[in-house]
């Protein structure tokens, strides 16, 4: 019997050696180890053996089973490995095909610039104030020291609704409204973003509707040097830490002294290029010390308090920051333009 078992083992191992597919392997497993397989067949004759022989033959039979099982297991392992490899090969994707992106829109570039500027000033302790787009003549002009017939009204041709109501030509009326609302309390530190309107024919640099951001600070000891310090900090945060400013005397009815502010060119850094018309400087905002009459009309004693104000055009800054060459892009709302701002 022992010989039979050995022969079975030899035969099984020989056959297993050449197995090349899982089906055949399974067949052989059934053939030799199955319930009706060859091994079982041989072991059926165990009953005829003596008590001494049985454990010996049993041991041999177990060894034979073990040897065959081991080979089958290793073959199975190999087949599984092969199968896995084949599946992985079959599942290969073209990694150069594009992925499915998250849906993603962008805020309008003007909103983006306004938010950036708001954040800079919020960081400097400013509140954000707002006012109506339709203003009274009083708040748009008179409260800002531009009485009727003032020559400065030449500078702004406005959209009137009635003799007394108009689309605001500047965000400065928000300053006047804020002062009255604060009832003489200090410090006042606000910025006011918003839409403004002027009767300009639209072209590459003009739009009858545009956006401004005004700032106003009132306190007991506000100096023109503080205005310079504030603006320098702002432009360095907005345009980069090497940005410089230059103030030139100018005129606004609501400030005295008044200044136009240039920044060193955002493109060339001041060495001169097409953007700055080879001057090295770009005009970006107007500012000055709040005119005593404006303080007075706002309920602040100009002998006790002083303040500064500044104002800038959002479109202008957006054009400089992003290199946009035509202001009309902002209001055409071509998605091919707007999607370019889907970035942090």
């Amino acid at each position: 019997m022992k010989e039979k078992l050995e022969a079975l083992k030899q035969e099984a191992l020989a056959q297993l050696q050449d197995v090349s597919d899982p089906q055949r392997l399974n067949d052989l497993r059934v053939k030799y180890l199955g319930k009706k397989g060859a091994l079982t067949e041989i072991l059926r004759g165990m009953g005829q053996l003596s008590a001494e022989e049985r454990p010996v033959i049993g041991q041999v039979a177990n060894d034979v089973r073990g040897a065959i099982e081991e080979v089958i297991a290793s073959k199975q392992e190999a087949f599984l490995q092969q199968e896995t490899e084949e599946r992985l090969r079959a599942e290969k994707v073209d990694v150069t095909l594009p992925g499915r992106k998250l849906a993603q829109g962008a805020i309008h570039p003007l909103s983006k610039v306004i938010q950036d500027i708001e954040d800079i000033f919020i960081g400097m302790g400013y509140r954000v104030a707002e006012g109506p787009e339709v203003e009274t003549d009083y708040f748009n002009f008179e409260a800002l020291n531009l009485p009727k017939n003032h020559p400065a009204r030449d500078m702004q041709d406005s959209f009137y609704l009635t003799e007394d109501l108009l689309m605001r030509t500047q965000t400065s009326p928000v300053q006047a409204r804020t002062m009255l609302a604060m009832e003489g309390e200090v410090p006042v530190k606000i910025i006011c973003p918003g839409r403004v309107f002027r009767r300009d024919d639209d072209d590459a640099t003009h739009s009858f509707q545009f956006h401004q951001i005004e700032g106003l600070v009132i306190g007991e000891n506000i100096r023109m040097s503080d205005l310079k310090g504030t603006l320098l900090q702002f432009v360095q945060e907005m345009f980069g830490e090497n940005t410089q400013i230059r103030l030139r005397p100018s005129f606004f009815p609501f400030t005295e002294p008044s200044a136009e502010v240039d920044v060193s060119c955002v493109k060339c850094g001041g060495s001169g290029c097409r953007v700055c018309k080879h001057t090295g400087w770009l005009e970006i905002l107007g500012c000055g010390m709040v005119h005593p009459k404006v303080l007075e009309m706002g309920g602040y004693d100009p002998e006790k308090y002083s303040g500064f104000a500044f104002g800038m055009g959002v479109e202008r800054i957006a054009m400089l920051k992003y290199g946009v060459d035509d202001i009309r892009h902002f209001f055409n709302n071509d998605t091919a333009f707007l999607k370019q701002f889907t970035r942090i």
């Binding site: 410090p187 007991e220 000891n221 040097s225 310079k228 900090q233």
Partner: peptide, 11 residues
């Protein structure tokens, strides 16, 4: 060029 003096305010 100077910083504003006086009380700070929360933005």
């Amino acid at each position: 060029t100077t910083p504003i003096e006086g009380p700070t305010t929360p933005g």
